[in-house]
Amino acid sequence: MTYTVASLFSGAGFLDFGFSETGFDVVWGIELVAQFASANNDNHQRRYNHNQIIIQNGDITEVNPQDIPRTTGIIGGPPCQDFSIGNANSPGVDGDRGKLVWDFLRKINFLKPKFFLFENVESLYKTRKHRTEALEPLLEQFKELGYEVYFRVLNTLDFGIPQDRSRVFIVGFKKEIIDTLKDNEIQEFKWPDPIYTIPKSVYEWPSTIDFGTEINEEEYIRNIDYPYELTVHSVIGNEEELSSLPNHISFRPYSARFHNVPEGDVKRKSFKRLHRFRFSPTVAYGNNEVHLHPTLPRRLTVREALRLQSVPDWYSFEKETPLGKMFKMVSNGVAYKLSELLAIQIKEVLDNYSNIQDTQINKANKATLTVK
Rank of each mutant, 00 (worst) to 15 (best):
N288L: 11
D225L: 12
T2W: 10
E304F: 07
Y150D: 09
T301F: 05
E140S: 14
E21Y: 07
V63K: 12
K126E: 15
N155D: 06
V121L: 01
R106S: 10
Y203C: 09
K112A: 11
Q81G: 04
L323F: 02
R70W: 13
V349P: 08
N355R: 15
Y228E: 06
D16Q: 02
E148H: 13
R252Y: 10
V121K: 05
L274G: 01
K114A: 12
H259G: 09
L139A: 10
P69H: 03
R152I: 02
W191C: 07
F317Q: 04
H275A: 01
H44V: 03
N260L: 15
F9V: 07
D265H: 12
S84Q: 00
R268T: 15
E185M: 14
I177P: 00
N352A: 00
I209A: 08
N49A: 12
E176T: 12
A335S: 11
N332G: 15
S316L: 12
K363L: 14
D265M: 13
H293N: 08
L139K: 09
G11D: 05
F189M: 08
N57Y: 04
S243V: 09
G324Q: 06
P281Q: 01
G237E: 01
P246M: 04
N51P: 07
H248N: 11
T295I: 11
S7K: 06
H259W: 13
S234G: 08
F24Y: 09
N51S: 13
I198E: 14
L300A: 01
Q187G: 08
I356A: 00
L124D: 03
A364P: 06
W28N: 03
I55A: 15
L350G: 02
S255L: 05
I236D: 04
P253N: 01
N238E: 02
S354K: 12
I195E: 14
P65W: 00
V93N: 11
I53N: 04
G11M: 03
S243I: 02
I221E: 02
N64P: 04
F258D: 02
K129N: 11
K129Y: 13
I54Q: 02
G92L: 07
A12Y: 04
F17T: 12
F277E: 04
D358E: 14
K112V: 10
M329Q: 10
F83T: 07
H233Q: 06
R307E: 10
S38Q: 15
G58F: 04
W102Y: 08
I85H: 12
R106W: 06
V168A: 03
M1Q: 10
T321R: 03
N287K: 14
G286F: 03
E148T: 15
Q163D: 06
L306Q: 14
V235C: 07
